[in-house]
Design a protein around this nucleic acid. Structure first.
Lengths: 217, 217
DNA sequence: ACCTGAACACCGTTCAAGT
DNA sequence: ACCTGAACACCGTTCAAGT
């Protein structure tokens, strides 16, 4: 999920000519922040380190972000857009099989989390949702939620999923997949299972249980 | 989930007599850290602030914790023990109805998370699980996982849950409940549902969907 | 319009020194 | 054995000043 990052960096470096006027410092800072998070964990994401990595002074980021939280929100949003794209791609491979598509979304979700553990955590813990201070971050969440909801609706249309409020069913699907992702990222899966397992197998195991239920029969 | 905190503080204050030899500084630091986390969020949990709150110098915590991560791990463990106790209590109210008991565990889990949002997050993101540097934290996770597993086994024994590897079923149950809790804490529930809802209703909604499945019938 | 340099208050961590 | 005081390197943030 570093798609485009290299291209962006190139764009950033090609403009300045001198050492002044960075080109797209905002973008460069987000990329740097993401790199720091993935390489050394969330606590390594420091405004100063991101500035250093982008080759500007410690004060420069404040031209583009009011504070550190805003940069974190941007990093989260960036990850959510990448996740949404990732999910969309997985879904596209099963256009006319809604149930397979739903399962593919689950697999892709868990795969993404396990592949980008630190980034995934930032995506869902970046900032308090309370007064919704970052509307475009909010949209990014909506995008992810929307993809799951659509998949459920498509299944219902094909009578592959029971009737009922689609949003409630989608919340159940989101919960089980997000929970598995978070537990996996936190290393809890081997604790419960007694062994490690591939994200794909894991996701299928758990989502098929949601599909057919825990009850006997 | 501040049970015993007051008692502990009393114990801590009654011993010292002078300003020296704190009594149980370790305990006092954990309590202070938890208070800081719940009142002002995770980033407010600072070794120096915890020391200040406990009335000791900034260097004193290093007598009891090798570094900040160790304090974080202790805070996480503390929360997990509290969660386990909370779950056990909820389960105890339905000794002879395994299915009700399973659902009660789900409700209690989500309730705990929503009531102690910041602490809950620390509990599951405190430290990297990799080389397992905090064995007693590990045990605390095991305790929570074990309660879910037991509940599943009890259901299977009563033929209330299908046959199959109990650990795999328990992972599905943990995932859906943990995922719902994490999404709720992150403010994602109203996004999907279009409205807020009580933890109890939320948990029952989602877990009963796991029980009977997404598939038609 | 966009960035730098210097400054302030605060942190994690260490270490010699105190009781 | 347990704690303090001072110090170091680092951080978030601000602000006057530079181009």
């Amino acid at each position: 999920v570093i798609e485009g990052a290299k291209a962006r960096r190139r764009a950033v470096r090609s403009k300045p000519r001198g050492r002044y006027h960075h080109g797209d410092l905002r973008r460069a800072l987000i990329d740097a922040a993401r790199l720091l998070v993935e390489r050394e964990g969330r606590q390594a994401l420091t405004l100063r380190a991101a500035a250093r990595m982008a080759g500007v002074s410690q004060a420069a980021p404040y031209r583009h972000f009011p504070d550190k939280d805003a940069l974190l929100a941007a990093v989260a949003e960036d990850g959510l857009r990448a996740l949404a794209a990732w999910l969309r791609e997985a879904a596209a491979r099963h256009e006319d099989e809604p149930l397979v598509r739903l399962q593919a979304l689950g697999v892709a979700y868990v795969r993404f989390a396990v592949t980008n553990t630190a980034h995934f955590r930032v995506m869902f813990t970046a900032v308090a949702a309370e007064p919704d201070p970052y509307p475009s971050l909010s949209e990014a969440y909506d995008e992810v939620a929307g993809l799951l909801l659509e998949a459920i609706v498509a299944c219902q249309r094909g009578a592959l999923v029971r009737d009922g409020k689609p949003r409630e069913l989608a919340l159940a699907a989101w919960s089980i997949v997000h929970g598995l992702a978070d537990l996996a990222v936190g290393g809890q899966v081997p604790r419960m299972l007694g062994e490690e397992r591939e994200p794909e197998a894991l996701s299928k195991l758990v989502t098929s249980r949601l599909l057919t239920g825990l009850a006997p029969r």
